[in-house]
Design a protein around this nucleic acid. Structure first.
Length: 494
RNA sequence: GGUCGGGUGGCCGAGCGGCUAGGCAGAGGUCUGCAAAACCUCGUACAGCGGUUCAAAUCCGCUUCCGACCUCCA
């Protein structure tokens, strides 16, 4: 089942490449995490869910994965130069670290309801100031940065001259950057070149978060933390670096420059970028009101949505588009996803009630094998989850046909039936990280429902339609649907 | 203005030279005490105009819309 090579689209080369880890059997993966100065944005969730699936799939394939995802709690500048943490703290009247903790907790809560696995290491920028200072020193020693009034800037011109590839990742050339750069950047006049960027910033007196350094009391530039922490935990060179594609420039571009500047090596072999989550065709944006929080989406407390959607429906919805494509969140799309998700989960349950007497070589076996193999091939092709889902729905049709008697059980062997069960389990739960939301409150309900169904069956046998219909209608009002099949009745939540 | 990515049936969304994507909605049918569910069949789509090719949604060119990045952003 795990045959075939894993192919990954590498943003750096702009093409699909065969994935070969540096150390056989091991994968080092770094993903840029959130800046914890505000509630998590749904867009962040899409990125982290995408990488969660990649993480799970690599693990499924037998790799020992060290997954590092940072928490940015310092160094992000606003337009006016104020640190995001400090600003959040000032507004909420909290300590900066209190703000960071509060939103870190919120972020973790949301990640949990989306059933994403925790990363192996989740380092914070403020916990790695020393490493960052050290990296600034290395870059200075290599002559690729300069100090001005206590701040240190990365010298992009010199770097471009030396390496010839500043802008390689984002497809930019330094001459263009020269003419494009806006003139409202902080400390513009201190820089030798507009595209240079701060790796250490001298702090003003009122700045709250600041540390001692050889150059000034200040704080690290935003791009630096990822360079320093990825190097610390994954080494100078590791396998995969990921993030949203809005980080390509300048963040990732500068990250590469810093790593090369400090130790003369490209940090990651494969750069993966997830595309944006849109809402009604446009990028989510708080200023336009074109935004919805995870909570609002779950509860339905938003004008953009007609009702609330279970986190697993949202996860399934995201799975239906490829991580490199934009994903347009709409109410119609969510409703379609909800129904599709339920259908696939129902089929997963149904398959357990199916039994075959045929040992092997049943007529349907080969076709089913091909579908299953195809699903894994699609996963190997740059994690093509929408295609995998299409295959699973082919399986759903077969399961339902068998269950309802449109296909005969003799057409499928015991062996193949088992294979369907294990494949669905593996892909749905282990790789896609979905959970069956209807099972969360099982308790005595199953037994009770069984009893009710038996009573109703009794009424039906006696042709007592009023009673039988009353049971059905009352349950329906409780959002429980009765399904009368060939082999008796079953039920599910609507 | 620069860089990049797109425009696929009612909606979402794969495919990216020849082979049914899939989901949702809709129509007809089978089953059923009725209904629901399930299953079967159906619509027959690739922005427009040229070009390359035996063959193009898929390659090339132009036109036209849309989006992202270039400034903090997953």
């Amino acid at each position: 089942m795990k045959s075939g090579e894993l192919i990954i689209y590498n943003s750096l080369s702009r093409q699909k490449e065969i994935f070969t880890p540096i150390h056989e059997g091991h994968v080092g993966m770094y993903v840029c995490g959130p800046t914890v100065y505000n509630d998590v944005h749904l867009g962040n969730c899409r990125t982290f869910i995408s990488f969660d699936i990649i993480y799970r799939y690599l693990t499924y394939n037998g790799y020992k994965v060290r997954y590092v995802r940072n928490i940015t709690d310092v160094g992000h500048l606003l337009d006016d130069g104020e640190d995001r943490m400090s600003k959040g703290a000032r507004l909420d009247n909290l300590e900066p670290m209190e703000v960071a903790q509060k939103y870190t907790n919120g972020f973790h809560d949301i990640m949990r309801v989306f059933n994403t696995l925790s990363p192996s290491i989740e380092p914070r920028a403020t916990g790695h100031i020393l490493e960052q200072i050290e990296m600034v020193s290395e870059i200075l020693n290599n002559g690729l940065a300069y100090e001005k009034n206590g701040s240190v800037y990365f010298d992009t011109l010199k770097y471009a001259e030396k390496t010839g590839d500043y802008g390689k990742l984002s497809g930019r050339v330094i001459e263009e950057l020269l003419s494009e750069t806006r003139d409202n950047l902080k400390n513009q006049d201190e820089k030798n070149h507009p595209s240079d960027f701060a790796i250490w910033m001298k702090a003003s007196d009122e700045h709250i978060m600041k540390w001692n350094s050889p150059w000034s009391v200040g704080f690290p530039g935003w791009h630096l933390e990822c360079s320093a922490m990825s190097t610390k935990y994954l080494g100078k060179k590791f396998d995969i670096h990921g993030g949203g594609n809005d980080l390509k420039f300048p963040h990732h571009e500068n990250e590469i420059a810093q790593n090369v500047g400090a130790c003369n090596c490209q940090p990651a072999n494969y750069w993966l970028h997830t595309n944006m989550l849109l809402m009604n065709g446009k990028k989510m944006s708080k200023s336009d009101g074109n935004t919805i929080s995870p909570q609002e989406l779950f509860t339905g407390a938003s004008e953009h949505v007609s009702k609330g959607y279970h986190p697993m429906v949202v996860r399934f919805f995201m799975l239906q588009s490829h991580y490199r494509s934009t994903n347009d969140l709409t109410d119609d799309g969510l409703q379609a996803a909800e129904k599709g998700f339920k259908r696939i989960m129902e089929a997963y349950k149904s398959v357990h009630s199916l039994h075959s007497d045929i040992g092997n070589n049943a007529p349907l076996d080969q076709k089913i094998d091909e579908i299953i193999q195809g699903a894994f091939d699609d996963m190997n092709d740059d994690f093509n989850t929408p295609r995998v889902l299409a295959r699973l729905f082919e399986l759903v049709t077969i399961i339902n046909s068998l269950k309802e008697g449109q296909m005969k059980m003799s057409e499928v062997s015991i062996e193949t039936l088992e294979k369907i069960k294990s494949t669905l389990y593996t892909i749905l739960f282990e790789i896609f990280g979905l959970m069956d939301e209807s099972e969360t409150n099982a308790g005595p309900v199953d037994g009770l429902m069984q009893l009710i169904i038996e009573l109703r069956q009794l009424a039906r046998t006696n042709k007592d339609w009023p009673t039988s219909d009353k049971i059905r209608d009352s349950l329906s009002d409780l959002n429980i649907q009765i399904k009368d099949g060939k082999e008796g009745s079953s039920w599910s939540y609507k």
